Deep mutational scan, measured.
Amino acid sequence: NITNLCPFDEVFNATRFASVYAWNRKRISNCVADYSVLYNLAPFFTFKCYGVSPTKLNDLCFTNVYADSFVIRGDEVRQIAPGQTGNIADYNYKLPDDFTGCVIAWNSNKLDSKVSGNYNYLYRLFRKSNLKPFERDISTEIYQAGNKPCNGVAGFNCYFPLRSYSFRPTYGVGHQPYRVVVLSFELLHAPATVCGPKKST
């Protein structure tokens, strides 16, 4: 009989979030998941669920729940959905087409922007091929755009693959930082360890 609440607040209220290319994953298990708490945590810009209804979450049980978190800019949030393409979905964080879970995003301009520009958040701009779903690539190998090998040196047709967002508070919403948490629900042929409040007794 599990009584402890799932530590969603640790994920959502973390002081620092990860850069999207090096997104963070927390496995959540053996706890009571009260998803209604999430609705009250922040004024969400996005709370979209796929393959599951957000209002039914509190009635369900899962084997595992994974919470992935990272920062992107406002106009990239739409890429965090099944079947999307674009720089983020292709080279940084890719959801599977049959994704079961929820994408939660909110504006973090007050936390993640600086007047002089916050350069701490990076994204991958160049990659030889698209990522597979939930693949994480943290390599910093020089990207070869031409025929000549780069031998690890940046220059003509040889690019450092990561680029930094420079978040400034005066930017338009599309270029402001957004914190994203992706909850993916895993149903294996194994005992369910993460249940809503109704199912945990």
Rank of each mutant, 00 (worst) to 15 (best):
N1D: 09
T3G: 08
N4F: 07
L5A: 13
C6W: 03
F12C: 03
A14S: 09
A14Q: 14
A14C: 06
T15E: 13
R16W: 08
F17I: 05
S19I: 01
V20A: 05
V20P: 08
W23E: 04
N24A: 10
R27F: 08
S29V: 08
S29R: 09
N30D: 11
C31W: 04
V32L: 09
A33K: 05
A33V: 15
V37F: 15
Y39K: 15
A42F: 10
F45L: 14
F45C: 14
T46S: 14
F47E: 03
Y50A: 01
S53F: 07
K56G: 11
L57P: 03
N58F: 07
C61A: 09
C61Y: 07
F62S: 07
N64M: 10
A67M: 11
A67F: 05
D68S: 02
D68Y: 03
V71N: 01
R73T: 07
G74R: 06
D75G: 06
E76C: 01
I80A: 02
P82M: 00
G83Q: 09
G83E: 06
Q84C: 06
Q84L: 04
Q84T: 11
G86S: 04
N87K: 11
Y91R: 06
P96C: 00
P96H: 00
D97W: 07
D97I: 09
D98K: 09
D98C: 05
C102N: 00
A105T: 10
N107G: 04
S108I: 04
S108D: 06
N109H: 12
K110Y: 08
K110D: 15
K110W: 06
D112C: 00
S113L: 06
K114S: 15
V115P: 15
S116V: 12
G117P: 07
G117Q: 11
Y121F: 10
L125V: 15
F126P: 02
R127I: 03
N130D: 10
N130W: 05
N130F: 08
E135T: 05
D137C: 03
D137W: 00
D137A: 02
I138L: 13
E141Y: 06
E141M: 07
E141C: 07
I142C: 07
Y143K: 06
Y143C: 06
Y143Q: 08
Q144W: 02
Q144H: 07
K148S: 13
P149K: 13
P149T: 15
N151L: 11
A154D: 12
A154F: 09
F156V: 15
F156I: 14
F156P: 15
F156C: 10
F160R: 13
F160H: 15
P161D: 02
P161H: 01
L162V: 07
F167R: 02
F167E: 06
R168T: 12
R168W: 09
R168H: 12
P169S: 10
P169Q: 10
T170H: 14
G172K: 15
Q176F: 01
Y178G: 01
S184D: 03
S184G: 11
F185K: 01
F185G: 06
A190G: 15
A190K: 13
P191M: 06
G196E: 11
P197F: 15
K198S: 14
K199C: 12
K199W: 14
S200I: 12
